[in-house]
Amino acid sequence: MNVFRILGDVSHLLAMIILLLKIWRSKSCAGISGKSQILFALVFTTRYLDLLTNFISIYNTVMKIIFLACSYTTVYMIYGKYRNTFDSENDSFRLEFLLVPVTGLSFLENYNFTPLEILWTFSIYLESVAILPQLFMISKTGEAETITTHYLFFLGLYRTLYLANWIWRYHTESFYDQIAVVSGVVQTIFYCDFFYLYVTKVLKGKKLSLP
């Protein structure tokens, strides 16, 4: 466990808490893509099946349970409790465009052709593209609430810190998880455009709005 990994996990947790707080305090899911949140719930569910088969550490187990709980609570807020505030009109990304290639790729390129391992691979590939419905929604409406941009910032920061974690682990432990690294790089690239807007607009006190 290194500092990049810990900070990455904290950023990830913070992102999910920020999103839940936004929904809870404003009693509204306006501007949030329910489709991205369903994909994240699917990511955690398929990745953390090893909770039942493999013990790694208390930290690992507790964090997995918290991530699952946050993720399912968010989906419940959007499609249950506050569904009348959910902007389904603008959440129009076609999920099959992501799910079909991701499913196909996880069968083709994995470490072991076993159900658990294919599901783990599926979750890694899916996570790398799961934010696209949210970014699509922002580009469609042309704006995002500032708190939503903080959520996206911490989610992007988490992935960036994981890249540093992998570089660290490669040098100190000779650990190299090719599937996670390649997907992680792809995922981080999707945030670059957003990071630019976040720094040039949101951090200067302006609302994120696209021309």
Binding site: R5, D9, R47, N54, I56, M63, Q178
Partner: peptide, 10 residues
């Protein structure tokens, strides 16, 4: 090296 049966990251 990668022990694929033990994914220790979140």
């Amino acid at each position: 090296s990668m022990d694929s049966t033990k994914h220790d990251e979140l």
